[in-house]
Design a protein around this nucleic acid. Structure first.
Length: 303
RNA sequence: CGCGAGGUAGAGCAGCUCGGAAGCUCGCCGGGCUCAUAACCCGGAGGUCACAGGUUCAAAUCCUGUCCUCGCAA
């Protein structure tokens, strides 16, 4: 079985790396195009490009897949595996060979592009991974297998994502073996229970202290990799990388309480404690270091 | 040449406008006080002020170039 792998972010890398490690025959990697990015708007390749090259795999980057069907016909593969590729695969491409997808949620819940973030944002205690048939719709194909994964209170996107990838990898390998042997089974999703999650916008990451502290901590956990939860303190934009709900203090919504040791912000329900943050121009710092040098110009946050 | 901020003790910052003996908060080491402490008091170590040139009697501070870090936008 010759696998053509579709995937772009870190999540995909873990799965790709795992497939190789376990001896699966991956013949190539398709990932998204290079994009102008960062200061100077220089063209930057997805990290996957280097990763795949490091594994001596050919890398394909097509601007619009549907325009390159002929190219795909030239690639010698028998099955496609997708994992957070980032775009829909056109029907013409799916018709060439079977295609399975790794989706980090318990489908039909959290269909769409941000299932991991959504589970964290909603404060879920459990999420999971599904291996499914890749279809033309949004994550609505038949499911081969799925497995739950516990979300720990201290988990955030950065810690949870690899856990889901590892579980996804196991399930994927299992499924591929079955497909190879012709013993795979699949069941249709219950459409009535389907939920969708949307793309994340920058503004979604703006912390709102008129909400509960817990909900804003969840926002930090969900968006810690990108775009990173933030709030505005006077003219300063402060990104929050790690926060918890403080239970030993009281305070008023939108009011900052800060001393040499702790950086607290009142919310409508509970106290939001910042453990790791960054002001524009500065490095990411633990609260103590941040407080050592930061000069507060205001202690109020506009709600 | 997309816009912008910054590189000063182990950490985080001030000082730079108006050149003239390197400072603050924390950490660290030593001592003291306390039943005790993330408390308080006393003392101490630790910096070629990113790098390279230039101006000057004198440069962290002014000028030029280089390297590095970071925020925004896309």
């Amino acid at each position: 079985m010759k696998i053509l792998f579709f995937g772009t972010p870190k999540f995909s890398e873990i799965i790709l790396g795992g497939l190789i490690e376990r001896g699966f025959n991956v013949v190539g990697v398709v990932c998204q195009n290079d994009k102008p990015s960062g200061r100077g708007n220089k063209l930057v390749s997805p990290h996957m490009v280097e990763f795949a090259k490091g594994l001596n795999l050919p890398v394909y980057q097509f601007e619009k897949l549907s325009l390159y069907i002929e190219e795909f016909k030239k690639i010698d593969y028998t099955i496609a595996v997708t994992a957070s590729y980032g775009k829909f695969l056109p029907k013409k491409l799916l018709d060439l060979h079977p295609c399975v997808n790794v989706h980090p949620s318990m489908l039909p819940v959290y269909r769409g592009s941000t299932p991991i973030q959504s589970a964290l944002l909603n404060g879920d205690k459990v999420t999971g991974v599904s291996i499914m048939q890749t279809g033309v719709g949004m994550d609505d194909g038949d499911v081969f297998v799925q497995k739950e994964v516990e979300i720990l209170p201290e988990d955030d996107y950065i810690s949870l994502s690899p856990k889901l990838a590892e579980v996804g990898l196991d399930l994927l390998c299992e499924t591929l073996e079955k497909i190879k042997n012709g013993t795979e089974t699949k069941t249709a999703q219950d459409e009535s229970k389907a939920t969708f999650v949307k793309l994340i916008q920058k503004e979604d990451a703006l912390l709102d202290f008129s909400c509960s502290a817990e909900s804003q901590v969840n926002k930090v956990r969900a968006y810690v990799e990108d775009p990173v939860a933030f709030f505005l303190l006077g003219d300063d934009r402060i990104k929050v990388y790690k926060a918890v709900v403080a239970t030993d203090v009281v305070g008023e919504a939108g009011k900052v309480i800060a001393n040499k040791k702790r950086f607290l912000i009142g919310t409508s329900d509970g106290i939001f404690e910042i453990l790791k943050c960054q002001v524009q121009g500065g490095k990411v710092l633990d609260a103590k270091s941040f407080l050592n040098g930061y000069r507060f110009k205001t202690m109020e946050i506009k709600l």
